[in-house]
Design a protein around this nucleic acid. Structure first.
Lengths: 313, 313
DNA sequence: GCGGTGTGCTGCCATTTCGGCATCGCCCGT
DNA sequence: ACGGGCGATGCCGAAATGGCAGCACACCGC
């Protein structure tokens, strides 16, 4: 429905090069070039600065770019809305997520929703914390399953669940019997750490700013799955919410001891949506399912049982 | 920039007929028809119901229509934003207004803004009160200069000024010496009334619901200018805010006696914008000017002087 | 210096799309 | 039965779009 020039313009801006964009679009670069030139003629201003190694949007280009991308996003959402009129929800859901949710919790939810609504497709991405704000506000994603962080602007929290970041370790670890821990108490015990992934870094800096103490990372990785195995083999303590390790905790293979630091003990996982964004039917559906599942895990999230027990009580 | 089918689709929906739309667009009806058919094929659903005497949007059509119109509006706003990058504000401002503001106050403001910003164009429409909500929420208009009415949904009041609806009459009218009046006190005196134009109707119904009293309209019209002449010739009392009659009141030709009814005595005129709507540069400019001018008239709006006096105090 | 490679841009030509005209089939009111 | 409104369709010329090859220019490594 929309003119091809919208896609061309968007791609050129993304790739910073007409030829690269044309290549990605599988059209001749001359075609893309002419469309851009025609567009600039229509607008009466230059939309790109031509450099020696590509193009860069001008101020006018940035303004038009925002309009074009918003139009494309709204078009996709509208299509999903129309496709869902018949009763069967359809369309793509774009989710950004904590990596710890992404490896265990979300696959299950996706599986359930997918079974009940076969025409819904899913795009689930782990994002670097520094890109969360941009990822949400760009409009490219429907919502995020993330730690609630008051620093995010232009983002609404439409559901949230208390959880606690805690120390994850084997039951035979010396600290496994504790009811709670401070980070300082973990000094001296080997820990495994995510590579610069989230707020823990900032809080750790505060915690240890006075004392010269340091956690000694025995293993650093950016893979949750790798760390899961490392912790299970007893190589050290990890710091996570229990959500990605529910099965191991239930089976008694791992123990989760909440951290006493404020702001960690009372962390909240929430569903974050860009403010003023209309949600597509599949996005609403997915949000409902996630909320439901998270609600069922609420006790686990806040205070997981220390030992194996039967039922969900 | 945007595909012609957007304009076609919008026009067809507005005119309720492919041939009428094609006529308005100055293209052959077959061209419009084929674009619509191709669009329906692309969407996979019917967008119009074909009736005996034209077409009517289906539910899917309504959804797509909203997207198309929003896209067109945002495009216009973006163009204005780009055109205003160079410093000289440019673009069209669409305003809906009280008729009483439209005949005296707004022309002056438009004149001033137009002189300072020659590339700005203006569309100022008087709207029937029953259509205010739709006119604002449709996105076709940038803002409204209207009575503030809490019943409006999805509308933000970004500036407001107290005023009072009052009885407007010649200085030699028997009631001209009063400091305030109730509608009941006006019973027996001939009045001139706007034809079903605004909230006065509802409030009058309340006021007179108990008593069997009635205002006796000697003249009913839908033209403010006509009523201005009628009141000046002494044919009766009119009920207005003073804003449209500032000159006559200043010159002592007319007297404005505030009404004592709550909700009329403390009426407010405000600048109302559709919620979540981004304002174009010329719209922001115009709003600032209107606010400034209304602020200068604030004393007049709330309590106009009863007799001629010099200066603005 | 000198190719090699990257960039945006531009003629030339084939293909696709779009619009205009006339026409068809339909339904309704007269 | 007829005329006038409606949307849909076949046919054809015009316009837009895209592909190919080539230009001019700037950078990089040798």
């Amino acid at each position: 429905m929309h003119a091809a020039v919208l896609r061309y313009f968007d791609h050129v801006a993304r790739h910073g090069s007409i030829r690269k964009a044309a290549d990605a679009l599988s059209v001749a670069s001359s075609a893309v070039n002419r469309q851009i030139l025609r567009l600039e003629d229509e607008m009466g201003v230059a939309l790109f600065e031509r450099g020696r190694s590509g193009v860069r949007p001008t101020a006018a280009g940035e303004l038009l770019l925002r309009h074009v991308r918003e139009t494309q996003n709204e078009y996709q959402r509208t299509r999903a809305e129309i496709a869902s009129l018949g009763g069967t929800v359809s369309g793509d859901v774009r989710i950004i997520s904590l990596e710890s949710m992404l490896v265990r919790f979300l696959p299950q939810v996706v599986d359930e929703v997918s079974a009940r609504h076969p025409k819904v497709t899913f795009t689930v991405l782990a994002v670097h914390p520094s890109e969360i704000g941009e990822a949400l506000r760009s409009g490219d994603n429907d919502f995020g399953v993330l730690f609630v962080d008051a620093r995010h602007r232009g983002v609404d929290v439409i559901a949230e669940f208390p959880t606690s970041v805690g120390a994850l370790m084997r039951p035979d670890h010396p600290l496994a019997g504790r009811k709670s821990l401070t980070l300082t108490e973990c000094v001296g015990h080997p820990v495994v750490m995510l590579q610069d992934r989230w707020l823990l870094d900032a809080i750790m800096a505060m915690e240890f700013s006075g004392s010269g103490a340091r956690l000694s990372p025995r293993v650093v990785s950016n893979s949750i799955e790798f760390m899961r195995q490392v912790i299970r083999s007893g190589l050290g303590i990890g710091f996570f919410t229990p959500i990605g390790f529910i099965e191991e905790i239930r089976r008694g293979e791992l123990v989760h001891v909440p951290l006493a630091e404020p702001g960690l003990a009372q962390s909240r996982i929430g569903i974050l949506v860009p403010r003023y964004r209309r949600l597509s039917p599949p996005a609403r559906l997915m949000i409902n399912h996630i909320s439901e599942r998270l609600g069922a895990f609420a006790d686990f999230l806040a205070a997981p049982p220390r030992r194996r027990r039967r039922g969900r009580s």
